[in-house]
């Protein structure tokens, strides 16, 4: 075998390995659609997405996932609102303010937090946060939107903090020097130069944090309470989509309507996370051109 042929073989090997992950992802999507789409022969898309009642085991059953979508969206949005300031300020502190020793400590703690199994966080929500919420606000149950949002925020913080930190770290030193040389203080430099320059990376971080939160299953299964109804207050229980799938899949007979409805719920989740990722990608590309002041 000459050198050219070897090159070709090596290229083919790498290509096929790279292909494996794409292929598997493709197969997952195909099976998701194959199991989910048949539902729409019996239930209209409109009734499915915007139906107010999720009674999959009643006779006749109703498969309206609007309460589940609302549940998912509300815990995700609330979790993001909590996680954004914590995540970004942590990132700023680590990248710009902290002395070297503390910087390392904080970074490792954040990584540790990212590595915590979600079931452990869910457990924490159940045995610590839930009783506390119940006692403090005198609620019938501590397993509710607030609890789920807090725990999801805890999960989104490491994602937001570490990606934002990379973005802040990548802000050219020249910008900061220019700012200091014009008589700006550290906090003025951070607020007016560093954060605006890192904004695309920070936005990407936030969206990836959100997509992590909306797809998270174990936490919402354990602490969101599981009520498939439109919530009236932040202390009501909800049943986000992933929790519904995880809880019911075991009981749904194979290829029954209920089974198909759960797959169709998975499709909705898939499109939401896909949209988040596309937006994140778009933002990070859009701002790339404005890059640094090179020649």
């Amino acid at each position: 075998m000459n050198r050219k042929q070897k090159e070709a073989v090596i290229r083919a090997v790498f290509f096929s390995f790279a292909l494996v992950s794409i292929l598997i992802l493709g197969l997952i999507v195909v099976s998701l659609f194959r199991e989910g789409l048949p539902l729409f022969r019996q239930v209209s898309v409109k009734d499915f997405l915007f139906g107010m009642e999720w009674y999959p085991t009643y006779d006749p059953p109703s498969f309206g996932i609007w309460p589940l979508i609302v549940g998912s969206v509300i815990v995700t949005v609330l979790a993001t609102l909590i996680a954004i300031p914590i995540g970004i300020l942590t990132a700023v502190y680590i990248a710009e303010v902290a002395p070297p020793l503390l910087k390392d400590v904080f970074k490792s703690v954040i990584e540790l937090l990212a590595g915590l199994p979600s079931v452990v966080l869910g457990f924490f929500g159940m045995v610590v946060v839930a009783p506390w919420l119940q006692d403090t606000f005198d609620l019938p149950t501590g397993l509710n939107i607030v609890n789920a949002s807090l725990i999801l925020a805890l999960m989104a913080v490491p994602t937001i903090a570490s990606i934002s930190e990379d973005a802040i770290y990548a802000v050219p030193r020249e910008y900061k020097e220019a700012s200091y040389a014009l008589g700006a203080t550290t906090h003025e430099t951070i607020l007016r130069v560093v954060i605006p320059s890192a904004l695309s990376g920070i936005s990407t971080a936030v969206i990836l944090g959100m997509s992590r939160a909306i797809g998270e299953t174990m936490v919402v299964l354990m602490v969101a309470g599981g009520a498939a109804a439109i919530p009236e207050s932040l202390f009501d229980s909800v049943r986000p989509m992933p929790a519904s799938i995880a809880a019911e899949m075991g009981e749904a007979p194979f290829r029954s309507l209920h089974y198909q409805a759960l797959f169709a719920t998975g499709m909705v989740l898939f499109f939401i996370t896909l949209a988040f990722n596309l937006v994140a990608d778009y933002i990070s590309n859009k701002f790339k051109e404005v890059g640094s002041g090179t020649l």
Partner: peptide
């Protein structure tokens, strides 16, 4: 005031 080696306008 200071002017640097590499032009460094803010974005």
């Amino acid at each position: 005031g200071m002017v640097f080696q590499k032009p460094n306008p803010f974005p």
